[in-house]
Design a protein around this nucleic acid. Structure first.
Lengths: 236, 236
DNA sequence: CGAATAGTGTCTCTTAGACACTATGTC
DNA sequence: GACATAGTGTCTAAGAGACACTATTCG
């Protein structure tokens, strides 16, 4: 990256830089994403990913954390990862905006609250949103779709799936995370064997869950490992 | 991404948006990257990834293609892929610049030529650059390192390795691509078997290469497949 | 008891990789 | 001939997945 006299950056029309965050959570066995209901034009009433302008004194990740907090009331997600930048000249009709996409996990999303610059916030099944090409404004459909792909990949070779689970959880809870994110059914027995064979994925607490139907499951918490090797490939 | 009255983008100090490109090629069995020698302050004389400001009327990829052409004389790389954005407030001492990283492949890089805003351009072994934390200006060390990681990953589950090879090539040429990018030695026989078993990775031309030492290899060209499934995992 | 869920074990097929062996060129 | 590189085959170990079977709870 170099600067020459004939391309003084100050001579350019200003770009704005934003971050947009796809916050995923599992609810009722469904993968959901937190969306903001726009209260203003353009696209009044349509849905958007939470996000907003990066401030002069913060880096991109800090902007993502702050916007998340402001727009959804959510403090420090359990996972926050950048996956790409979007900068087509006409992606926002108002001005030239380049946005940086992040995806995040929260274990059990507290009901999001509208913040200063959001009219409302809600959790919507990702499948529903992606099935309607016009549900989201701008290029947020593409951004959400890319975010989901990155989340799917992350589940293959990292242990982030445990971040969807609050505190102590059963192996079957973890399986439902994989099933919800990947959109497939997994064999219960094979999943159990596999997870327990992976060093540091989960560690036993000695506790069991009571009250449900069927045999009470043993409970685990997230282990110390952060990578799964060899990866846990999803069915293709 | 939303806009509220109290965060009018026009009230912000302008951000500049740039692209930086890590162009990889194989030369003498080594993975090399094209670097620009800066002719101006700051960091005069130090090396940088080619790149530059995104113009108001072009998207990010177009900016990458244009800058690549301007700074290295290179037209349309065989592979060009975005991998991340970098935006720490102090990453460039002159002003707030957010840069978007791309990595690219060229089969046998023609000697790069300095363009309008570059004093010179050269190909340098990636290992040498990454072993010297101060070889590159700004955060280009991190960017190059991330680019390499993405290139390594891409070789695992896509057929982009063939883009490093010009026209017709031997299986051993392809093997040397993998060895150079991954920085490992691969078993010759196993590699051959594996590549030929993957549908659409390479297709035979019926030609052989003559003149070298040893048995003349059959020559292939890139096949129609673009993904390798199951992936060709690199040794860990 | 039966239904539901958890947990374990077995079998088969595929793949990765070590490695031996053969093939065909140059010197 | 020796040497170098290309190409093929064989064996073994590990992993994925189908699936059977056992365990433990509730109604």
């Amino acid at each position: 990256m170099t600067v020459a006299a004939d391309y003084d950056p100050r001579a350019f029309p200003p770009f704005a830089v934003t971050v947009d965050i796809a916050v995923f959570t599992i609810e009722d066995g469904l993968l959901k994403v937190a969306l903001i209901e726009r209260g203003e034009e353009p696209h009044k009433g349509s849905l958007a990913l939470p996000g907003g302008f990066v401030r002069p004194d913060e880096n991109l990740r800090e902007a993502a954390v702050r916007e998340l907090s402001e727009e959804t009331g959510l403090e420090s997600p359990d996972h926050l990862e950048q996956f790409g930048a979007y900068g087509d000249p006409d992606r926002d009709p108002r001005m030239r905006i380049v946005t940086v996409g992040y995806w995040a996990i929260v274990p059990d999303l507290p009901e999001p609250v509208g913040g200063t610059d959001a009219a409302a916030a809600r959790k919507v099944p990702v499948a529903d949103v992606l099935n309607d090409r016009d549900a989201l404004q701008f290029d947020h459909h593409q951004i959400l779709s890319d975010a989901l792909e990155h989340a799917k990949d992350a589940l293959e070779d990292t242990t982030v799936a445990t971040d969807f689970c609050e505190g102590e959880f059963a192996i079957s809870d973890l399986r439902r995370v994989y099933e919800a994110v990947w959109g497939v059914e997994l064999d219960q027995g094979n999943f159990q064997n596999k997870v327990l064979e992976i060093d540091g994925f989960v560690e036993p607490t000695g506790n069991r869950r009571t009250g449900g139907r069927g045999r009470p499951p043993e409970l685990f918490r997230a282990g110390s490992a952060d990578r799964i090797d060899p990866p846990f490939r999803r069915p293709r």
